[in-house]
Amino acid sequence: MIANTLILLIALLHLYILVLQMALWTKPTGRKAFKLSPEFAEASKVLAANQGLYNGFLAAGLLFSLTQGEAGRAFAIFFLVCILVAGIFGAITAHRKIMFIQSVPAVIALAAVFARI
C-alpha cells in the first residue's frame, strides 16, 4: 500500500512536470519553475516539450504498473529505475536539485517496492 501510494505520487509529479514543460514552459509559471528568461524559454520550447513528453511516458508507465497487480511490480521497478537514472543525469548535467526532486523519491519508492510495503 505504501509503495503504491509513493508510485502514484511520483507519477503525479511527472505529470506535473509534463504540464510545466509542454504547456507552461514560456508562461510565467513555467519560467519561474525553471528560472528561465523569456527569450531562452521561447528558444527552447520545442526541446522542453520533448522532455515533457518523456516525463509523461514515465508517469504512464508508473500508472500502468498500478493496474497490473503483482505483475506490475516489475514495471514499477523498471520505471522507477529510469527516473532514478534520469535524476542522476539531470543532477550532473543541469542542476543538483533534480537529484532531490526525482532520484530521492524514486529510491524511496524502490525501497518500498522491494520491501513489499
Results as ranks from 00 to 15, higher is better:
M1W: 03
I2V: 15
N4W: 01
T5L: 15
L6Q: 08
L6W: 08
L9W: 06
A11K: 05
A11N: 04
L13C: 14
L13M: 11
H14T: 15
H14C: 15
L15V: 13
I17L: 08
L18Y: 10
L18H: 12
V19G: 00
L20T: 01
A23C: 15
A23R: 06
L24E: 11
L24V: 03
T26N: 11
K27W: 04
R31W: 12
K32V: 05
K32M: 10
A33K: 05
F34S: 00
L36F: 15
L36H: 04
S37M: 06
E39Y: 02
F40Q: 11
F40N: 14
E42L: 09
A43H: 14
K45W: 02
V46F: 07
V46I: 14
L47I: 12
A48L: 03
A48F: 03
A48G: 11
A49H: 01
A49S: 10
N50C: 02
Q51L: 15
G52W: 10
L53R: 00
L53D: 00
Y54D: 00
G56D: 02
F57Q: 12
F57Y: 10
L58T: 03
L58D: 00
A59F: 10
A59P: 03
A60R: 08
G61N: 10
L62R: 00
L62G: 06
L63Q: 08
L63N: 05
F64E: 01
T67C: 14
Q68K: 06
G69K: 01
R73C: 04
R73V: 15
A74C: 01
A76Q: 11
A76K: 11
A76R: 09
F78N: 05
F79I: 15
L80C: 12
C82V: 08
I83E: 15
I83D: 13
L84P: 02
A86Q: 09
A86I: 09
G87S: 07
I88H: 02
I88D: 05
F89Q: 01
F89H: 03
F89M: 12
G90Y: 06
G90L: 08
G90A: 08
G90V: 09
I92C: 01
A94R: 02
R96I: 07
R96K: 13
K97W: 09
K97A: 13
I98D: 00
I98L: 10
M99R: 09
M99Q: 05
F100G: 05
I101K: 14
Q102R: 08
S103G: 03
S103E: 03
P105G: 01
P105W: 12
A106D: 04
A106F: 10
I108H: 03
A109S: 11
L110E: 06
L110Y: 11
A111E: 05
A112F: 04
A112H: 05
A112N: 05
V113M: 02
V113N: 02
V113G: 01
V113I: 13
F114D: 06
F114G: 06
F114S: 11
